[in-house]
Design a protein around this nucleic acid. Structure first.
Length: 947
RNA sequence: GCCCCCGUAGCCCAAUCGGCAGAGGCAGCGGACUCAAAAUCCGCCCAGUGUGAGUUCGAGUCUCACCGGGGGCACCA
């Protein structure tokens, strides 16, 4: 009864052919080549002077990641793969390519984990970096492993501290329009070339005063500035760490605006250059626009209005409307308010102006208190104009009118002078206030038919003349120029440029950041000499800052380092004998390390200098051949648009300081910037609104989504653990291999486009690689199956068309279309050469595939008989002969609609094409004997007959 | 409220200077292979470009308005 059973038990199902390119074989190939690249140092980029550096260089770089505990998901490597493809292509076209990777490893999560568990942040950070490196390695990225840096490395942050000292020991010389060493400023004061503010000789000033004077010039300085103080977290926060309703993003604690002593960086000194030099870099217009907007350059005038308590200075962009200034407003915090306020209300004060208070002082105090209590949210949502009269008047300098002075919170202390001249006729905010308070409105620009609102457009000036000057009839631009000249001549004001940009709050009350290379004596901060660097973070028992009752605004930040008393109190000899100092206990913000890492990659082992002089010139020096105003910088910097302003602006600022001081030759850090899109993902919620595993959701025939049979809601957005829709590169490498994963990410769309992740679609790229493999390798034996047959003309045309196309697409970062062209070529091989591809086509195909799918390409190249890596092989070059067609098929349109086609020799001239078109029988029929009115022949494209 | 970007087959995406709307992939359908299925292979189907005007011999592409989506800024004088 027993028979040979042909039933195959599950588990040993007939395996696919032993040498089929599947996930298992891909994995084996990938690990083997990754090991070989590492062992041979394939991607080591030589520095100037080393063999290989004579080639043209290319510096391609990613925004480095923060190594979080969650590891990478499939969205993170998109840009990394994109730069890798470009780098590999450039290497094969004869470039010396630098493609490094590092880690932005200071940061809050490791510190918070330390607070919770007592684990040193360095332990967590290093474990996370190790995991990131492993995840990145499996993707086959051609980084130079010798140049990997982390901002938390002591050998790195030593130089972050050094750069801080450069900034601290400099001042901005507006005459020279650049930073200079502070020692030169001291010399100017000492010699008397530069007088002190009150004229006393510098040498006669007490030391404390001399120090304070010099400190007030430094590019890094201590300031008592309004900051976001969060007692619940025990730290000050950057603006972007505070939510719109005035709470901390992390922990949701109240945040208070408080004046606290903090380190600031004088980025405002560079506002003009930061704005102007945007014209010299190759960046997306949107990012340039955001930076310009952030810097907020506006041209206008300062005008002084005489008042009993002193002049009130205002900034206005519309000095042409001065004759329409009918009142003034000071910000509630304006220092002049108290002096202006008289003891009693003037006779006949409008009741709407007093806020119901008996005296001006009372009204002002009440209003200030109310304004301070208002949350950011109130101010944003409630734009109704409020304010009180100070009881004082000032004099409009153009017409001698007495105008009332108000306090109102729609004027901000932080912009301009904190005071405005109000011109209700030409400013809607002033119009609203004037209407609410019954103030006069005088039109000074002819508004045409517009009534009942401010007119902010251009038009002829009216009502704008005094005994000496008349603006009447002038347009806005002309009127501005005229009145500024008059104001300057009379000493009432002058034209100025104003910026929205503020100085950069640079200190944080945290543990896991760079310590400042600063100690304090009785007079203030002292920069440590270079030989005392690095200042190493001390070990502490408690990593948390002192926290307080979240609602208690009247508390002071106490950084974690301040408790390390034996570290804080030091005896040092800084040149005048051993003395006692206290170390600065704040740490730097996370932006510090990322401000200059692109410089350290150039020369990571340098222990004498932050980066090598020659290396800087070689990799990022100015290249006048690109443009006469080329500022230098990284050739391509790829990252997300979320860093459009802060990181990129801070980095540009530091770079310009280093340039001014002669430490670098380039003027910008990043010559070309590219924002990659995001991989997004669907997430699904059940009827209770809880997220369900996205992987398990299915779509039914009606297009509805269900999970375990129950209907679920689909949302589209980020990938995240809490959304239960994370897909990791590790999973993809296991299921398909890294090459398939790389190809999928590059193939689904152009680099700049955001797009949904779709695991289902990954089989497409996998099938393609499988087909390439099968065309070149026998799936049963693993032996190459290329032939030595001469390819036919069609095949050569297909090959060279692909080469020409791919050579255009790679450098333009159009990887999706490059891949399509390779698929097309491979499809041609599949169809025409079922017995194996001709070697003369197979080899260029492999080389062209290599940037996108490097492991399989290396393996194929090897099996085709080449021992060396293909990383330095020459990229195929198209032969023009195969790109020209012998004949061209012209579509023939009649009135723009295609009616027929004719095929003519490719070298036929316009007349011949026209003759052939008009002779076509369908066209003859369409014309029905009539003469065409016009015939348009577009060479190589089409013919359009107009009847 | 202001500014910027994007809307092309069921889905992801192509389309030089304005010149035949389709390169490629996914899904779907049919077939080959298989006892069967998976995998693999071959073939096929599918939109007139968000809407409405305008310029043009000709518009996905240029202009204007509107609709939808995304992003930035938001009392910055």
């Amino acid at each position: 009864m027993s028979t040979e059973s042909t039933t195959i038990a599950p588990g040993d199902a007939p395996a696919s052919p032993p040498h089929r390119y599947d996930a298992r074989l891909a994995g084996e190939i990938e690990r083997r080549w990754q090991d070989r690249w590492a062992a041979e140092g394939t991607f080591h980029a030589p520095n100037p002077g080393e063999p290989g550096s004579e080639k043209p260089k290319a510096y391609v770089m990613d925004m480095f990641p923060y190594p979080s505990g969650a590891g990478l998901h499939v969205g993170h490597p998109l840009g990394f793969i994109g730069t890798d493809v470009l780098g590999r292509y450039l290497r094969m076209t004869g470039h010396n390519v630098l493609h490094p990777m590092g880690f932005d490893s200071f940061g809050l999560p490791a510190e918070q984990y330390a607070v919770q568990t007592g684990t040193h942040p360095r332990t967590t950070t290093e474990a996370n970096i190790a995991r990131y490196k492993q995840q990145l390695r499996q993707l086959g990225l051609a980084h130079d492993p010798r140049r990997s840096i982390a901002t938390t490395d002591v050998t790195y942050y030593r130089w972050t501290q050094w750069i801080f000292l450069q900034i601290f020991e400099s001042w901005y010389d507006t005459a020279a329009d650049g930073a200079r060493p502070i020692a030169e400023l001291v010399s100017e004061f000492e010699s008397g070339a530069r007088p002190t503010p009150d004229g006393r000789p510098y040498g006669t000033l007490p030391e404390g005063e001399r120090r304070a004077l010099i400190d007030s010039y430094r590019l890094a300085y201590i300031s008592e500035a309004p900051v976001n103080w969060c007692p619940g977290l025990g730290t000050v926060l950057a603006n972007e760490e505070v939510t719109a309703d005035g709470r901390s993003e992390r922990g949701n604690y109240p945040v208070f605006r408080r004046n606290l002593k903090q380190w600031m960086m004088r980025i405002t000194a560079y506002a003009d250059r930061l704005a102007a030099d945007l014209d010299r870099v190759d960046w997306p217009e949107s990012v340039k626009a955001m930076q310009r907007n952030w810097i907020g350059r506006s041209e206008g005038a300062r005008v002084r209005f005489p008042a009993p308590a002193g002049e009130i200075e205002v900034f206005t962009t519309r000095p042409d409307t001065l004759f329409g200034a009918t009142y003034m407003v000071l910000a509630p915090e304006h220092p002049l308010v108290d002096r202006l306020t008289p003891a009693a209300w003037p006779e006949g004060t409008d009741e709407r102006w007093t806020g119901g208070a008996a005296t001006p002082a009372e009204a002002v105090a009440g209003y200030r208190e109310a304004a301070a209590r208002k949350s950011e949210l109130d101010r944003q949502e409630n734009k109704e104009k409020t304010g009180v009269f100070t009881g004082a008047f000032a004099t409009n300098p153009v017409n001698g009118e007495e105008v009332p002075v108000f306090v109102a919170d729609y004027v901000l202390m932080g912009y301009g002078t904190g005071a405005i001249m109000a011109v209700p006729a030409q400013d809607q905010r002033d119009w609203d206030f004037a209407t609410a308070f019954g103030l006069p409105i005088v039109r000074t620009v002819d508004p045409g038919d517009r009534k009942g609102e401010a007119f902010t457009g251009d038009g002829p000036a009216i009502n704008s003349a005094n005994a000496e000057i008349s603006l009447n009839g002038l347009g806005v631009t002309e009127a501005k120029r005229t009145i500024i000249d008059w104001l300057a001549a009379k000493g009432f004001g002058e034209g100025v440029v104003q910026y929205k940009l503020r100085d950069w709050l640079f200190s944080r009350q945290r543990y896991w950041g760079e310590p400042f290379p600063i100690v304090w004596d009785e007079h203030g901060p002292v920069g440590l000499p270079e030989d005392q660097l690095p200042v190493v973070l001390p070990d502490v028992d408690d990593y948390s800052p002192k926290t307080y009752d979240p609602d208690d605004a009247n508390t002071e930040p106490e950084p974690p380092l301040s408790r390390a008393q034996e570290w804080v109190n030091v005896e040092l000899d800084l040149g005048d004998g051993v003395r006692s100092y206290r170390r600065e206990t704040n740490t730097m913000p996370q932006w510090a390390g990322s401000c200059w890492y692109y410089l350290r990659y150039l020369d990571p082992e340098n222990s004498e200098r932050f980066t090598g002089v020659e290396a800087e010139k070689y990799w990022i020096g100015k290249e006048p051949a690109i443009s006469p105003v080329d500022p230098g910088g990284v050739d391509l910097y790829v990252g997300g648009v979320e860093h459009a302003v802060l990181h990129l602006l801070y980095s540009r600022f530091w770079h310009k300081v280093l340039f001014d001081l002669g430490h670098v030759t380039s003027e910008e850090p990043f010559r070309k910037l590219f924002n990659q899109g995001y991989i997004q993902a669907y997430a699904y919620t059940d009827s209770r609104g809880l997220y369900v595993p996205a992987e398990e959701v299915v779509e039914d025939d009606n297009g509805r989504f269900t999970w375990n049979g129950q209907p679920v809601n689909r949302e589209y957005g980020k990938m995240g653990k809490s959304l239960k829709n994370v897909v990791t590169p590790d999973e993809m490498c296991d299921r398909y291999g890294a090459d398939t994963f790389r190809l999928y990410e590059m193939y689904t769309g152009p680099m700049e486009a955001s797009r949904p992740w779709s695991t289902r679609d990954v089989v497409g790229p996998q099938r393609f690689l499988q087909r390439v493999w099968r065309n070149l390798v026998d799936e049963n034996t693993g032996a190459p199956r290329v032939t030595d047959v001469e390819p036919d003309a069609d095949t050569l045309r297909a090959l060279h068309k692909a080469i020409a196309g791919v050579r255009e697409d790679y450098p333009a970062l159009h990887y999706n279309t490059a891949a399509a062209k390779l698929i097309e070529l491979n499809n041609h091989l599949t169809k025409e050469f079922p017995g194996g591809a001709p070697r003369s086509v197979a080899e260029p195909l492999v080389l062209m595939l290599a940037p996108l799918a490097p492991h399989i390409s290396e393996e194929l190249w090897n099996r085709l008989g080449h021992d060396a890596t293909l990383a330095y092989e020459s990229f195929p070059v198209a032969d023009e002969r195969y790109l020209v067609q012998e004949t061209v098929e012209y579509p023939i349109q009649v009135n723009g609609k295609v009616r027929s086609r004719v095929t003519v020799p490719a070298d036929a001239d316009g007349a011949a094409v026209q003759a052939a078109a008009l002779a076509d029988e369908k066209i003859v029929a369409a014309l029905a004997g009539a003469e065409p009115r016009k015939v348009i022949v577009v060479p190589g494209r089409l013919v359009n007959v107009v009847r």
